[in-house]
Simulated scan of single mutants.
Amino acid sequence: MAGDGVENAKPPQKQEDLQPHPVKDQLYGITYCLTSPPPWPETILLGFQHYLVMLGTTVLIPTMLVSKIDARNEDKVKLIQTLLFVSGINTLFQSFFGTRLPAVIGASYSYVPTTMSIVLAARYNDIMDPQKRFEQIMRGIQGALIIASFLHILVGFSGLWRNVTRFLSPLSAVPLVAFSGFGLYEQGFPMLAKCIEIGLPEIILLVIFSQYIPHLMQGETCSNFFHRFAVIFSVVIVWLYAYILTIGGAYSNTEFNTQISCRTDRAGIISASPWQ
């Protein structure tokens, strides 16, 4: 009997044959993880949506800097293009060599206060040529960021941050992230108020698509579809709404600042691009 039991025993499973448990068996509410990525069509749409989300900060920060420098639209375009390019490079490095989280490494608002101190430095007041002044300020900002990045590299490669995170909990991390984001309200909501008929519908539609419609839809597929692509739906609808108002002449006789904030053809970014 003992011999039969040994003969009928299954061979031990090889390490490479081991498969992870389905994602839903790991964490409730998690559909995809590192070992089970979404299909390519959904991945492309989610990536484009993430691009739309980060585009606000990518455009907002150069707009704030350029307004303090009194630079041209061409200079703002250069800043936006530089941020997009560097964000793409950093995201690729993070995806292949970093944490591999589905996140875009974009511009950080945390550096804006110190960057503003460089922009408003007195040593640039003697430069009369706006283009040369812009270039000198950008060189100063780049040099400061390079020096500051060495501190990040030192903390990361030395393992110091790993020891610090042991003492951090979600209760302490959430206020830190929240306070960093709350700083954008000072810039974002006054800009939204400049064109309330465009900004307010965007916020309302985003809340409806992300928080209400998924609970009203029957079936998990439809619910997840509206929940995951709420930003794309709201941005497309509101942009078409703004475009209709623009071509319909709703802002033809309004003030110049209102046209800059509300019209879809007054940003000056596309027309100032080198490839235009």
Rank of each mutant, 00 (worst) to 15 (best):
residue 39 P to R: 06
residue 105 I to S: 13
residue 151 L to F: 02
residue 232 I to H: 05
residue 209 F to H: 08
residue 112 V to A: 11
residue 232 I to P: 00
residue 42 E to I: 15
residue 182 F to D: 03
residue 50 H to L: 08
residue 64 M to I: 13
residue 87 S to E: 00
residue 167 F to Y: 15
residue 70 D to K: 13
residue 5 G to M: 04
residue 143 G to R: 09
residue 7 E to P: 02
residue 135 E to S: 12
residue 243 Y to C: 13
residue 157 F to A: 01
residue 173 A to H: 10
residue 204 I to N: 01
residue 92 L to W: 02
residue 93 F to L: 11
residue 192 L to W: 05
residue 200 L to M: 15
residue 147 I to Y: 11
residue 194 K to M: 06
residue 242 A to E: 07
residue 140 G to M: 09
residue 239 W to N: 13
residue 67 S to N: 12
residue 83 L to F: 14
residue 99 T to G: 06
residue 270 I to W: 09
residue 173 A to D: 11
residue 171 L to R: 14
residue 125 N to L: 12
residue 142 Q to K: 03
residue 76 K to L: 13
residue 274 P to G: 00
residue 95 S to F: 03
residue 21 H to R: 14
residue 153 I to K: 01
residue 201 P to E: 07
residue 200 L to V: 12
residue 21 H to F: 14
residue 58 T to N: 06
residue 1 M to Q: 09
residue 179 F to Y: 08
residue 268 G to F: 04
residue 104 V to S: 03
residue 130 P to M: 10
residue 49 Q to S: 07
residue 20 P to Y: 00
residue 2 A to W: 07
residue 111 Y to W: 04
residue 237 I to K: 03
residue 193 A to D: 06
residue 19 Q to F: 05
residue 219 G to P: 12
residue 88 G to P: 08
residue 265 D to I: 06
residue 220 E to G: 08
residue 121 A to W: 15
residue 185 Y to W: 08
residue 92 L to T: 11
residue 109 Y to W: 13
residue 89 I to M: 05
residue 246 T to D: 12
residue 76 K to H: 02
residue 256 F to W: 05
residue 210 S to Q: 11
residue 205 L to A: 03
residue 237 I to M: 10
residue 143 G to L: 09
residue 170 P to A: 07
residue 234 S to D: 00
residue 163 N to I: 08
